[in-house]
Structure formats: C-alpha cells, structure tokens
C-alpha cells in the first residue's frame, strides 16, 4: 500500500519567553493508506503536538512532512486551510461543536468552507447524520445531546467532506465506557470503508482497537512495530 503520511526527523519547539521547550525531538513515522493507527503516550509526551502537525493545524520547527506525496512542511498557510478542509477530519476529546448551531449546521460547516451550495450541503450532511444514527436529532443544539451523541455529531462533521484521514484526539476521554465503545466501533467501521484513522490516546483499551500502535515518549517514537 502507498505511504499516505511520511514524517522524517520532525522537530517542534515552543518558545516560552526566553526558554525554548522541545515538544518533538526528531520523529519519524510512516502511515499507509487505510491503516488504523493509535498514537500512545503519557501526557506531555508530545502526542497532541504531533497530531496538530499531522492535521496541518500547526507547522514543525524542522523536518519533513509529506502528505500524499506532497511536502506539507513548505506549504503556505492558505493552502493548509484547504488541506484541513478536504483531506482531514478532526475529532476532539471536548467535541468542539459550535454551541449556537444545531446538529445539521454543525455538520455542514466544513462543506460551507468547501464552497458547496446550500442544497448540496443539506443533502450531504443529512446522509452522514443518518450514518451516525442521529437523524431524529438534526435540529437539536449540542447542549441538548448526550456526550456520546455529541461525539457522533463531531464524527459526522469529520467525515462529511469525505477526507482520506480521520484524526481523533482522545475521542473517548469525556465519555462513559459504553458510549466510548460505540464511538470506537464507528471508527473501526470508517476504517473498513477505507478511511485512514489515527487516534491519539493514553488509554491502552482504546489503542487495542487499532491495527498498529505508535508509542511516543518525551517527543520521540519508542516503538513503531505492529503490536
């Protein structure tokens, strides 16, 4: 299978006043298309930083990031917005839905920035909302939903633009065991449909669902083998 994500010697440093704090110290990762990968590590290990860079939300201080044979590390910020919109779907621990928009509008958000017509947006969003089983909650605001339902809305939003990569940052962190399990099942199904799924977690139970676990400690990859 072709290599979808290729990261070479990636370094990220944060400047805090006069001190430079290293978050990633030369990371190398290869992720193939269609993989289900878990990135595991304790808090402060740099796994969120890595996810932000993989998700084109942030740029590396040094090193190379090749996404789909394209060097992302040299791309302009404007183009990064387009990559986030077209190729990546994000799922966060805290859901990150817009509280004043209903389920339908939240899911339509990436389509709006992609420039779809209102009709097309409604149609595509309806379809993915049905896929995550929330058709009867389309007109509800996030505050009227349970944690599991909110996360399903977030997943619907992540996949509505049919991205090749789904990035999830502790997607079950705020959920009870049952809801968490449901969410992970959805990720497995999405992986089966061909999406490359990358989950960042510190929970071994979550990591078990993945085909491969990448351990990160102190900004370095410890073990890239299939577990």
């Amino acid at each position: 299978m072709a290599s979808l994500i290729e990261v070479n010697d990636l370094t990220k440093e944060y400047k805090m006043g006069k001190i430079t704090v290293p978050a990633l110290n030369g990371v190398d990762i290869d992720i193939n298309e269609g993989e289900f990968v878990a990135i595991m590590g304790p808090s402060g290990s740099g796994k969120s930083t890595l996810m932000h860079i993989l998700g084109c939300l942030d740029t590396a201080t040094q090193g190379e990031y090749i996404l789909n044979r394209e060097k992302v590390s040299h791309i302009k910020k404007k183009k990064l917005a387009s990559i986030r919109n077209q190729r990546i779907g994000f799922v966060f621990q805290t859901f990150n839905l817009l509280p004043h928009l209903n389920v339908q509008k939240n899911v339509e958000l990436p389509l709006m920035y992609a420039g779809y017509s209102k009709r097309k947006r409604t149609e595509l969003a309806k379809k993915v909302i049905a896929e995550v089983g929330l058709t009867d909650r389309r007109k509800h605001k996030p505050s009227e939903l349970s944690g599991g339902q909110r996360q399903r809305v977030a997943i619907a939003r992540a996949i509505v633009n049919n991205p090749s990569i789904i990035l999830a940052d502790e997607p079950t962190g705020n959920l009870d065991t049952n809801s968490g399990s449901d969410i992970l099942t959805i990720f497995s199904e999405l992986n089966l449909k061909g999406h490359t799924v990358i989950i960042v977690t510190h929970d071994a139970a979550v990591a078990k669902r993945a085909n491969r676990v990448i351990h990160i400690v102190d900004g370095l990859i410890e073990n890239g083998d299939i577990s």
Partner: peptide, 16 residues
Amino acid sequence: TREIGIRLTVGARRRD
C-alpha cells in the same frame, strides 16, 4: 476564540 479555532480546523481560511 474557541469558535474561531473550530472554524479554522474544519477548513475556514483567514479571509473567511
């Protein structure tokens, strides 16, 4: 701020 972050994440450009 958070809303702006969410919008940028799902693909809003700075211009938007």
